[in-house]
């Protein structure tokens, strides 16, 4: 790679330097058979095979996410019994929630993404970990447990709606100034 010219972040450039890179990947993927400007695609069979693989993994998702919920619960428990390290534990919960919000929808459990996203948002400021926040964390964990134990996939219909409503109720309850 002749990239000596880009050595170092502050390398001197005349103003703007453009690097036009030969499209080696296209040559590799097409065996060099495509003319410049022509584009290739992915075969329907390949996409179907990948989707089959994806779906197979999605079947195992509830079991896997259970372990994350247990991890959340363990951190929640520590928030209660060891308040002096509560902010650390809330930060861990925040990270797990981030992971969960990105994955639920991928595997057909958008409710886990919803709960994960909400938990991620409300644990954003771990240093302000009040008792109310800990209760709110618990409400999220309970909701996620219900989703997974009931295998509530998709939007969950009436049950899904009910779970989301009870979460909203908990958010209102524990976010109000006179919640205690």
């Amino acid at each position: 790679m002749s990239d000596a010219a880009v050595e170092g972040k502050t390398a001197k450039v005349p103003g703007v330097r453009f690097y036009v890179i030969r499209n080696i990947l296209k040559d590799k993927a097409s065996g060099g058979s495509l003319a410049p400007g022509d584009k290739g695609g992915i075969s329907v069979e390949a996409i179907q095979a990948a989707e089959a693989e994806f779906n197979k993994m999605a079947e195992d998702y509830p079991d896997w996410v259970k372990s994350l919920i247990e991890e959340l619960f363990e951190n929640y428990r520590r928030c209660i019994d060891t308040p002096e390290i509560r902010h650390e534990k809330v930060a861990v919960i925040h990270e797990i929630a981030h992971d969960m919000k990105g994955q639920g929808g991928t595997f057909g459990y958008p409710l886990i993404t919803n709960f994960g996203e909400s938990l991620y948002k409300c644990t954003h400021k771990s240093e302000q970990a009040s008792d109310n926040l800990v209760e709110l964390i618990k409400a999220h964990i309970d909701g996620m447990k219900a989703v997974i134990s009931g295998r509530v996939s998709g939007d969950g219909g009436d049950i899904g709606q009910e779970l989301l409503e009870s979460l909203e109720h908990a958010i209102k309850k524990y976010s109000s100034p006179d919640a205690d």
């Binding site: 790679m1 002749s2 990239d3 010219a5 450039v13 005349p14 103003g15 703007v16 330097r17 453009f18 690097y19 036009v20 890179i21 030969r22």
Partner: peptide, 8 residues
């Protein structure tokens, strides 16, 4: 004046 093009 301030553009350079490099082919790699």
């Amino acid at each position: 004046r301030n553009v350079e093009v490099v082919h790699v």
